[in-house]
Each structure stands twice: as structure tokens, then as C-alpha cells.
Design a protein around this nucleic acid. Structure first.
Lengths: 192, 192
DNA sequence: AGGGTTCTTGACCATGACGTCAAGTAATGC
DNA sequence: GCATTACTTGACGTCATGGTCAAGAACCCT
């Protein structure tokens, strides 16, 4: 069953790992659309090697996306599901996702689905959305969150943050956080 | 004093006007960063003519920005200043600017200052900001708008909408408007 | 009508990215 | 240690954009 073992040569193994690490660095800094030449340079290999080893950008992303963002998104989902209060749970989820988007440009490329090809990415995205929908429903049941907010609204709120975070790395983090609270406040029912 | 009259030749005058019109169309549809080749094609001239007549993108923008967005922004400012209630005035201003951004991608290129060179654009932008700051102050004085909102927050709220509107032309207008109201609600004081 | 001037053209260069592949280089197994 | 195979390289082709300019076309005046 373990039909994998065409075992790579030593230099190839070294390069695969080096490229993975370089890709993590570069993608973290500039998102998943960074030029592959840059990754190659950072890894000390030539561009051709990346294509040879990973088949192109898509394959390279698949190889790092787990470590880059999937784990963090899953971590957020796990963390908030331990919260008792449905409203707090919902708001905490949004807060954390929004901050992840600020801190990790690559997360946006995942959440914005700007990479149609990657299967694991699509699945993760799907899952996160479903979770968000459930959190919203629970929070609305308490009456604290407006009931005209839809799951799509939540998706778009995240999507919007992604666009924004991607377009400006310079916005100070504090102000960004403060404004997130305004947005959350706007989702609450008007009847105090 | 009127030292202008090196009077253009007939074909040149025709082209200048044709290019202006084409630029209005193309810029309206795709923003101020549209390829100049596209403008040229729409005007039925060659790219070189645009460079020759307007000196490049910057000059072309200067030639159309007034008609394209300046008038509309000024119109909004005039319209809201007739509103009595300071809160309504402030919120109405934001609503209208946000809708302008939705309807006119080019407005964003102005408001986002993505065109460092253009002097009239910069002035307009400056002025709009100042107005927004005043409207905010008046609205806060009533106690209805949170007093921790800063003029920069307002600038950024507009900026953010610009980024968003620019990135997705497909968002249905109704949903967009509805979500604007959430945002406005988030700026009101929590003490109902 | 035709000569002198103004204007336009589109081929051209440059940049920066993606992706490919023949030829050269390095590890491995014997 | 050397032949064989796996691996890497970097120059090359391509595309899309911004911008330039010599040569040819259009206009205007007399």
C-alpha cells in the first residue's frame, strides 16, 4: 500500500525542504502570489527547480498551505468552540479571523478563494464558512445579534477585511482593531 | 494675457475631443488605471496620439477628472450641507460617498489617492476630507455618534469602501447598501 | 493646387512575470 | 573510482503593459 518510495536523491531532498521553507517566508511576507523567482532566490536554487519539484505555484502552495494558514484557521475554530456564550463565541471568531487576515496576508489568498485550483484550500474555506454560519445562527438566537444579518453577510465581512488587509500593510494594528469593534457593534440589535 | 492660441489643427481638435470622450467611457467602466491602449482603441486613434496630446495617463486624467468625479463629489457636499440635523448630515454624506464609490470605480482612484501626481485631484481629496471632519465633529457634538471616532477613522472607512468597491463589481447593490447601514450603526454611541 | 507644417501612426524598446527544456552537474551503486 | 542516472540550471519563448519616435499622412494657407 505504501507505494511511494522512489526516494529522492540527497540534493533533491535538501532542495525540496529549502524551497518549502523559503516559500513559507516569502508567502508570509507577500502573499501567495509572490513571484516564484523570489522564492527560488530565497531558497538558493533556480526557478526551474521549483517547477520540477512542485509542478508550479499550485503545487508549492499545496505543500505549504497547511503550515501557513490551515492550522491557524483550525486553531481559531477550536478555540472559539470552547466559548460558552454564543454571542461572545461569534464575535470572538470574527475578531480572530480578522486579525489573522491582518497578520498573515497569505490567509486572504485562501479565504478570498483567489486560488481556484487547490483542493485542500477550497475544502478549508468551505468548512470555515459553514462554521461561521452556525456561529451566526446561535448568536442570533439570543436576540443580541440582528436577525437580518445573513451568513453571506458574514462571508462578505470577512472577504472585505481580506481585500482591505491585502491592500495596505501599513495600517497600524491598534486602529485596525478598534475599527473592528465598530463593525461588530453594527451587527448587534438596535434594541440595545 | 490670453497667450494660448497656437490653435490646434482640425484633426487634432477632433482627436482631443474623441479621446476625452473615450477616456470618460473607459475610465467610468474600469477605473483610472485602464490600459491606455484601450482608450486609444475606443477613440479610434493610436496610443501614440494620446501621449502626444495629453502627455500620458496623468494628463489625460487631469483632462477628465472634473467631469468624471469632481462634480459629483462637490454635488454631494453641497447637497448634504442643506441638511439640518447634524447626525443625518454626517450619515448622509457617508452613504452618498459610499454609493458613489460603488457606482463609479474612478471615484476610488481619486479618493484613494492612487494618483500622486495630479494636483486638482489632490486638492479635491483634501477638501472632501476636511468637510468629512467637520461633519463628524458636528455629529459627535449631539452625542449620537461615538466620540472615540476620529477624522482618520472616517477617512479610512471611505478608503476601505473604495478598496472593496474596486475589487468587486459584482456585489449586488442592495446588499451593499444594507451593509453600509450596519457600518453606520456601528458608529453610533452604545448608549442607545 | 501644392508646399510647408502639424499630426498620427504602429513598429519598436523596456519591464516583469510565467513556464519550458536541452545541456551541464552531481549523487549513487557497483 | 567510474558509469549511470537523477537533478539542476539559466537562457529562451511568451504575454501584457508602459512608453518613444522616425516616417508617412493630413491639413491649411496662399
Amino acid at each position: 500500500m505504501t507505494a511511494d518510495p522512489p526516494r529522492l536523491r540527497a540534493d533533491a531532498r535538501r532542495n525540496v525542504e529549502g524551497i518549502r521553507l523559503a516559500a513559507l517566508d516569502v508567502f508570509r511576507a507577500n502573499g501567495l502570489n509572490s513571484p516564484l523567482d523570489e522564492v527560488a532566490r530565497a531558497a538558493g536554487v533556480s526557478k526551474g527547480t521549483i517547477y520540477h519539484r512542485f509542478g508550479g505555484r499550485q503545487g508549492l502552495i499545496d505543500a505549504v498551505v497547511e503550515e501557513l494558514v490551515a492550522e491557524r484557521i483550525k486553531g481559531i475554530i477550536t478555540a472559539v468552540s470552547a466559548i460558552e456564550d454564543p454571542v461572545e463565541r461569534f464575535e470572538s471568531y470574527l475578531r480572530q479571523i480578522w486579525l489573522l487576515q491582518y497578520d498573515e496576508p497569505a490567509a486572504n489568498d485562501v479565504l478570498l478563494r483567489s486560488l481556484p485550483g487547490s483542493e485542500p484550500v477550497a475544502a478549508l474555506c468551505e468548512h470555515a464558512n459553514e462554521v461561521a454560519g452556525n456561529l451566526l445562527g446561535d448568536a442570533q438566537a439570543t436576540g443580541v445579534i440582528r436577525d437580518d444579518v445573513t451568513a453571506e453577510d458574514v462571508y462578505l465581512l470577512i472577504w472585505e477585511r481580506g481585500i482591505i488587509a491585502r491592500s495596505c500593510a501599513q495600517q497600524p494594528r491598534d486602529g485596525y482593531r478598534r475599527r473592528l469593534e465598530y463593525t461588530l457593534r453594527g451587527l448587534r440589535s438596535t434594541a440595545c
